[in-house]
Simulated scan of single mutants.
Amino acid sequence: MVTPFRGNLDVDTEAFIAHCRWLVNSGAGLAIFGTNSEANSLSIGERIELTDALIGAGVPASSMMPGTGTSSIPDTVQLTRHAVDAGAAGILMLPPFFYKNLSEDGLFAYYSEVIERVGDSRLSLYLYHIPALSGVPITLGLIERLLKRYPDTLAGVKDSSGNWSNTKAMIDQFAAQGVDIFPASEAFLSAALPIGAAGCISATANVNPACIAQLCARWNDADGAALQEEATTVRKIFQALPMIAAMKYTLAHWHNDADWCTVRPPLTALDEATGHKLIDDLKAIGFDMPGVRAKENA
């Protein structure tokens, strides 16, 4: 889930809550504080405050899967405890991502230490495999070890490798053991859902949630192939660009609110020429964001 910022780079909490409500009403859950949230550009305090603001605004904690993984065990434990106490449905946890070429033993020790320190039977842990950015892969062997040690805690994996063979291997090996496997692109859904995937955790659900939710629900219906084609077409437009900036530009256009374009450095916003072409490309395929409210006098 993307995080809206004001022009001065402060989080726009009101816009954050409104976006969450729109996503839930469109059939999506809320993977707050993931990659597209610019989570690693947010402080620990900001993540906690935003979680509390969502719950205070009546957004159900049961719809949330907050990202809590950091390179610091104490920070990860603090974020994870807070999310569990808030009633989040699950926790999406990056591996410690600063040191590279880590051993499986080291990663197992990290996750084990976090689980033991949190010490809460309510913890449902989802491992976050995104090696292109973290540089630290979540291997099948690590998943197996954690599942054996913590069968009631390890709930699933988000596979952001973009490698279908890896996603399929995860589904084939672990779905039957009750582990939820989520590919990170809706383009894989028609292949993944029939063999046991749990759904997808996708960047472009930020802008196309209803279509993706319908695909998850109706992939095996007569219109399943058409829904897959529609979702994949939208996905291809966004993934050809810097994804976070492109989604924020799109949200800015449909909300009529230029602040939505803001990203925190070191990321940069789309330039106007690229942004205008993006909107033209989306309109050419009939894309819309029903239910998004345009800001007046923006």
Results as ranks from 00 to 15, higher is better:
4 P>Q: 13
6 R>W: 14
7 G>N: 15
17 I>F: 04
22 W>A: 02
25 N>S: 13
27 G>N: 02
41 S>D: 11
46 E>T: 07
49 E>K: 12
53 A>H: 02
54 L>I: 05
56 G>L: 00
59 V>I: 03
60 P>Y: 00
63 S>M: 13
63 S>C: 14
69 G>T: 05
70 T>A: 10
70 T>C: 12
74 P>G: 08
75 D>H: 13
76 T>H: 01
80 T>C: 00
84 V>R: 01
84 V>I: 08
89 A>S: 11
110 Y>P: 07
110 Y>N: 04
116 E>D: 09
117 R>G: 01
122 R>S: 06
123 L>H: 02
124 S>C: 13
125 L>H: 05
126 Y>D: 01
137 P>L: 04
146 L>I: 11
153 T>R: 11
155 A>E: 10
157 V>S: 12
162 G>K: 09
169 A>Q: 10
170 M>Q: 15
174 F>V: 01
175 A>D: 06
176 A>V: 08
177 Q>T: 12
187 A>M: 11
190 S>E: 10
191 A>L: 14
195 I>Y: 00
201 I>C: 10
203 A>V: 08
203 A>H: 09
208 N>A: 10
209 P>H: 03
217 A>D: 05
228 Q>W: 04
229 E>P: 00
232 T>A: 13
236 K>Y: 14
237 I>W: 08
237 I>C: 10
238 F>A: 02
241 L>F: 11
243 M>Q: 15
248 K>Y: 07
249 Y>C: 09
250 T>M: 04
253 H>T: 11
256 N>P: 04
257 D>R: 10
259 D>R: 14
263 V>S: 01
264 R>H: 09
265 P>S: 10
267 L>N: 03
269 A>F: 00
270 L>N: 07
272 E>D: 15
276 H>S: 15
278 L>K: 06
285 I>H: 05
288 D>E: 15
289 M>F: 07
